[in-house]
Design a protein around this nucleic acid. Structure first.
Lengths: 246, 246
DNA sequence: CCCTGGTTTTACAGATTTGTTACATTGTGC
DNA sequence: GCACAATGTAACAAATCTGTAAAACCAGGG
């Protein structure tokens, strides 16, 4: 396989992806600067359409949304995000230019999770982002999920059975992480692709099977065999379940 | 979302209908080619009137709509679709050309569920269509129905007696799901075929008997025997009842 | 530029599910 | 009790789905 330590050091380490939505290049650049300083990974959009695509495709952990955008306010996007199941609980911070109190109230009303008025101190922005991410679940510190002796540590990106670390690839890890945080529910291959790979990536559905297999293999270790928690749901897809088979 | 019958039919036949709206024959042809390669069923319209007609008549699963159309832009159709209850949930992908002129509208959110700019790779189009169909149809209610110790968990697609999961095929599961959500009522074989198999599916009525038998067998487990809840209504068909047999 | 580890595609084998048929059994009205 | 219709059963071949191995592909590091 591969040494786990190594890919842990890549750019996805324990970084969160933040989508910056603003039409002014200068602002985007400034924000990117500030965020990357604090180890966030940034993607940018300059209009609503681009933003929506990126949100669906890349599933950022948080959205920084400018209130004023040409051709439809950020409010429009906001509504849309809150309307759809897939994006409903993605945290959004609204950027407002002036301290018009109405705007602030409106922004909160539509479902923005927080707001910040320009100009602002980078430290404040970072603080708010971290707070939101923490609140959104998972948190910057990384989560741990345990089922019986099987322990997933999101922060270190490792899986243990007891205290024996398992060896598996990044995709297998992500798959397992998704499964362990969505137990007892059957997912189609398509849904798994959406959730684990990201929407709109073009890969064959059968690819999922292959990774499922590798995950199952990885879950069989001297310390214990948890491979039967990854269950096949014939005609549908797969499911993670700590309850017995059949 | 979609009426359940429709969803089932599509699922069963594994073919979705896509309406292509574009005034240029060449484009329509190209799109049709790409789509049929991936097992989609295509219908075409070259103007808004035709398109609307087809949408109402044939209820496609998804609409591919060109932005530039003679005699009223695609925007017009878009608005209409989103305004009407009947068509509001129909996913629409907007085709936009990447000319400077069109950049003006780039930022506008007209309510399309996704956008793709010409020229595009067929693979990308297919990927986006699939993702969208998944999102549209994926709102399946995750219900749990319990009768005595018998528990149907739609989300995980499993049946339990107590906490012992049962083993049965997909068709048996669907059959039981239908029965458990329509208890105390007799259905003819024909009705069951319509409801569980999907409308306009050609299978012998006696096939139902066979699946009823398989379901009954599945409902007999060490943990309990619920097979007598599937009752024969002589001269009519079958019924699910939690009250005892007559 | 090649290596290397990881991912995706592909092809095929094996397993399960499914619809049908033929035959057995049951129930009903006479 | 008989005849007949309706339903239960078992077996089978076709269709589908999943598991698996291996080849093709890709990106990053030397």
């Amino acid at each position: 396989m591969f040494p786990i330590e190594e890919w842990r050091v890549n750019k996805f380490m324990n970084t969160h992806t933040v989508l910056i939505v603003d039409d002014e290049f200068a602002i985007r650049d400034m924000l990117r600067m500030a965020l990357e300083m604090s180890n966030f990974h940034c993607i940018e959009a300059e209009n609503i359409q681009q933003a929506y695509q990126l949100i669906v495709d890349e599933r950022p952990d948080l959205v920084l949304l400018d209130w004023m955008l040409p051709g439809g306010s950020g409010l429009e996007l906001m509504n849309r995000l809150k309307r759809e199941e897939l994006t409903r609980d993605m945290p959004v911070i609204m950027l407002t230019a002036k301290t018009a109190e109405d705007n602030v109230i409106q922004g909160l009303d539509v479902g923005a999770d927080d707001y910040i008025t320009k100009p602002f101190a980078p430290r404040e922005l970072i603080a708010r982002i971290k707070a939101l991410l923490r609140r959104a679940g998972g948190g910057v510190e990384g989560e741990k999920i345990q089922v019986a002796e099987l322990l997933l540590d999101a922060e270190s990106k490792r899986i243990f059975i007891g205290d024996q670390p398992l060896d598996m690839g990044p995709t297998e890890f992500n798959l397992l992480q998704f499964f362990m945080s969505h137990q007892e529910r059957a997912y189609t291959r398509g849904q798994l692709l959406d959730q684990v790979w990201g929407a709109n990536v073009y890969v064959e559905e059968r690819t999922v099977d292959v990774h499922i297999r590798r995950l199952r293999i990885a879950l069989q270790s001297k310390a214990g065999d948890y491979s039967n928690m990854i269950q096949t749901v014939r005609g549908t897809g797969y499911r993670f379940s700590s309850r017995g088979l059949i």
